[in-house]
Design a protein around this nucleic acid. Sequence first.
DNA 1: GAATTCATGTAACTTGTTACATGATTTA
DNA 2: TAAATCATGTAACAAGTTACATGAATTC
Lengths: 189, 189
Amino acid sequence: MSLGNALLGLLSHGPMTGYDLKKLLDHPIGFFWAAQMSQIYRELNTLEEKGLVKSEIIPQEKRPDRKVYQLTKGGKETFLSWLNKFPDQLNEASRSRFLLRIFFSSKIKLDELAFEIKRYKKEMEEQLGYLNKVAQWIKDYSREKKLKKHAFYWNLIVKKEHKSIAAGTEWADECLQLIEQKKRKEKRI
Amino acid sequence: MSLGNALLGLLSHGPMTGYDLKKLLDHPIGFFWAAQMSQIYRELNTLEEKGLVKSEIIPQEKRPDRKVYQLTKGGKETFLSWLNKFPDQLNEASRSRFLLRIFFSSKIKLDELAFEIKRYKKEMEEQLGYLNKVAQWIKDYSREKKLKKHAFYWNLIVKKEHKSIAAGTEWADECLQLIEQKKRKEKRI
DNA sequence: GAATTCATGTAACTTGTTACATGATTTA
DNA sequence: TAAATCATGTAACAAGTTACATGAATTC
């Protein structure tokens, strides 16, 4: 239940609603753990059933009530024990629709493949823009003393994403060159 | 149903049993699409219900019967239309337990983080070894005329993995240095 | 006046994981 | 003789996605 632990971890920064959690999950965390709203609400229910979080309804004027979740003792313990014990597998089973398509792409036209790779490259560029925003967000956030200690770790993640985006972009360029070469070669024959 | 399309794609190379499919999924495809045996059997049943594959039981001496699956016309069409239409999202929602742990790692000791990153690096090295085997496998495989045309595309994937493994390894080294620096700094204070 | 945001969710469905089950044959 | 391989799966569960629902307040 990695999503559950993500939620517990976020709640260790303070009480929040499902909606707030979703925003954090989208924003800096989306890079390495995505979740749908509906999944978050379900997970929060499960966590509450297990006694790891408790909720309190706070009425608001002119707005729907806020259902604010906070960690219980058990929740803190569960989260810390998850953090402290080594996972038996570091990486999730990999699944990339994009590479799956490339694997079979001898059956499509070279131009179509090139198009798809260009779109991939564009996506990398968008992610880079987003990553820069995240880096800025970390800077802003870490002005608060309480959050300063996190910045070091969060920047490690940013660094990793930077490298992987660079690798992806480089790869895309090389691919496009190789495809051009292949196209010329096929014309000659 | 990406797994379904992967299976259809593999079956387009010729009739196979679920077991054979699993071996291919583990071996070169595992890099970008993993699946459990039980999932494959279930997916094959679904594909058969939809009329995209058909199976034939071939009795064997001294071995359990083979249940050989092959594509139907509908299966070929479905696969090709999947290949030819652009997916609305190239990348799956990202999920990395490893990065999730790093995000929260201000709560664990620096040495433990370093240990985890070292293990990550080791995993990268193992993957590199595996990747080299895959590259060799492609070479061997593409001696067969029928499969030669795939080699170009499969090598694009190898190239991508190479780059991403290199990026990961580099990142791990830099992290370990930064952690050492931070440790020294903390001792001084 | 239309679209978006805030805030809550439920239901149905699909996909992925883990554990269990069988039983002969081959390799170390 | 123990383990691994071949080959088939089922069942239960966990996790993720998509579609649907509500309704006020704010922004364009």
